[in-house]
Simulated scan of single mutants.
Amino acid sequence: MTDVTRWWLVRHAPVINPDKLLYGQAEIAVDRVDARVLTALAGSLPEAAIRMVTPLSRTRLTLEAIGGASPTPLVEPGLLEQHFGDWQGFSHDALAASGDGRVAEFWRTPATARPPGGESFADVVNRVAETLGRRSAEFAGRGIVAVCHGGSIRAALAVALGIDPAAALAFQIDPLSVTRIDHIPVAGERPVWRIMGVNLPPTQPDGY
């Protein structure tokens, strides 16, 4: 299976968010001070893999902190976090107090409800599905380390497992965790996915 594309999906470092804002695709600072964890993470990733980040600085800064920013990584907007539209930058409490009925509807059906000016999680799944397929074909037989977001990693698991977006929201994806999935092409048929691990703490590379 020489054309298998191996993905290491890394969630960025913890954000600094004392006001518990709904940040989505907005820029927000990250905490990169845990040198022990960053060193362990760096050692768990294959050196020869393609490096990929999203347009948001928190993914680039995380990659820099683990020493993987050279050569310059690819920037992939398809792996961005969910866009919460007009609600980005507001706290959960502020949104609840706004009296906007769309807020309650969003929390009742978080996979399919779409914030004003934003996207639903189901939209994210579709976006990530296209990205994974395109990049897996482009880098067939290679490894890809993609520093991205909790939402896009959950979306990738929805794609790989073929499950409903609502079910994928149940996955816990911790900062600086690694989720491993393999894209396996099948002649004349749709490719299949293999799940190697979800929300893994930094360990040694898995034989890549």
Rank of each mutant, 00 (worst) to 15 (best):
P115K: 00
T72F: 01
A129V: 02
T131K: 02
P205M: 03
T54V: 01
L79M: 14
A35L: 09
G162F: 03
P185Y: 11
A40K: 10
D86H: 14
V128H: 03
R194D: 06
I16C: 01
I28H: 11
A129H: 07
D3I: 10
V30P: 07
G67R: 14
A40S: 09
N199Y: 01
I66M: 08
G78S: 09
A29D: 10
P46Y: 08
P46Q: 07
N199E: 05
A137K: 10
Y23M: 07
I163V: 14
T54C: 02
E47S: 14
F90P: 05
P175A: 14
P191H: 08
H149E: 04
L61N: 09
R127L: 01
I66Q: 06
R134Y: 02
L21C: 13
G133F: 04
Q172M: 11
L79Q: 04
E138V: 08
D100G: 06
Y208V: 03
D31A: 09
I163C: 10
P14F: 03
R194W: 10
L9C: 07
R108T: 05
R142I: 01
I184H: 07
L161T: 15
W193T: 08
L21S: 07
V147G: 05
G207S: 13
G43T: 05
G133L: 12
V10R: 01
G118Y: 13
F84E: 00
A26S: 15
A146D: 12
P77E: 02
D123M: 00
Q25W: 12
T109G: 12
I195C: 06
V198A: 02
L61E: 15
L63R: 08
F90R: 11
D93W: 10
D206T: 06
A160Q: 04
A49W: 14
P115T: 03
R108N: 03
S57H: 12
A155Q: 02
L41V: 15
D34A: 07
T179Q: 04
R108E: 07
P115C: 01
L38I: 07
F121I: 13
P115H: 00
R180H: 09
A122N: 10
V4M: 05
L80C: 13
V198S: 06
A158D: 00
V178L: 05
R190C: 04
V53G: 02
T59M: 02
A48R: 15
G24A: 09
L157K: 04
G143I: 01
W7V: 03
T109I: 06
G162D: 09
G101H: 08
R142N: 06
I66L: 15
V37Q: 06
I66Y: 07
A35F: 09
A48C: 12
D86M: 14
M52K: 11
G67V: 05
A156D: 01
G99N: 11
